Computed example of a mutant assay.
Amino acid sequence: MVDTVAAAVLGAGAVVWLVWRGFCTPPGSFGSWAMFSHTNAYRVRLYDAADGQPVCPWTYEPRHGFLNSVEGLDDLVRYLEEEHGRRVVGEGVALLPFTSVRIAVRGGRVLRA
């Protein structure tokens, strides 16, 4: 009986500790969940360089790719130019682990603004 109670208390304590470490500690600290602290994403406004019309990147992105890296944006810019013949320009922000960086799309490349 004592072993069962001790195991239940230790199990409950471990679950509480995991939830607390996962949700209540700053990202990057020991034991934090990388799922929450190491995401990459970008938000950008793209325009066709020829006529200035807006280009929605989500029309060309895979449906599961809503948190994509800057390298993914570079691939998208290259894909638009090579496959669709659309040269795009734009500005936005890249969300990197623990920081954000302003970016620009110029000349078929993603650059730090």
Score class of each variant (00 low, 15 high):
M1W: 04
V2K: 10
D3T: 10
D3Y: 08
D3I: 08
V5D: 09
V5R: 09
V5Y: 07
A6P: 00
A6C: 04
A7P: 03
A8T: 11
A8Y: 08
A8F: 06
V9T: 12
G11H: 05
A12G: 14
A12M: 08
G13Y: 04
G13K: 06
A14H: 02
V15M: 08
V15W: 02
V15S: 06
V16Y: 06
W17K: 10
L18V: 07
L18D: 02
L18M: 07
V19I: 06
W20K: 10
W20T: 14
R21M: 10
G22A: 09
G22C: 05
G22N: 07
C24R: 15
C24Q: 11
T25I: 05
P26A: 14
P27K: 06
G28A: 01
G28E: 02
G28F: 00
S29V: 11
F30Q: 13
G31N: 13
G31V: 09
G31R: 14
S32H: 11
W33S: 13
A34R: 15
A34L: 11
M35G: 14
F36L: 12
F36E: 01
S37F: 04
S37Y: 07
S37A: 15
T39H: 10
T39M: 09
N40T: 11
A41T: 02
Y42L: 02
Y42D: 03
V44W: 00
V44G: 00
L46E: 13
L46D: 07
Y47T: 15
Y47D: 13
A49C: 08
A50D: 15
G52P: 01
G52W: 05
P54E: 10
P54W: 09
C56V: 14
C56Q: 15
C56M: 14
W58C: 13
T59D: 15
Y60T: 02
E61M: 15
P62G: 15
P62I: 06
H64W: 14
G65R: 13
F66L: 14
F66D: 15
F66W: 13
L67R: 13
N68K: 12
S69I: 01
S69F: 00
S69E: 01
V70H: 02
V70P: 03
G72M: 03
L73D: 04
L73S: 01
D74T: 14
D74L: 07
D75N: 14
L76R: 01
L76N: 01
V77F: 00
V77D: 00
R78T: 13
E81Y: 07
E82R: 14
E82K: 12
E82Q: 13
E83H: 13
E83C: 07
E83Y: 07
E83R: 15
H84W: 12
R86K: 12
R87N: 05
V88D: 02
V88G: 01
V88C: 03
V89D: 08
V89I: 09
V89P: 00
V89N: 05
G90M: 00
G90D: 01
E91S: 09
E91D: 11
E91M: 04
E91R: 10
G92K: 04
G92L: 02
V93A: 03
L95I: 10
L96A: 06
L96S: 05
L96T: 06
P97G: 08
P97R: 08
F98E: 13
S100V: 04
S100N: 09
V101L: 08
R102S: 08
I103S: 02
I103E: 03
A104V: 09
A104L: 05
G108C: 03
G108E: 03
G108H: 03
R109T: 06
R109Y: 01
A113N: 05
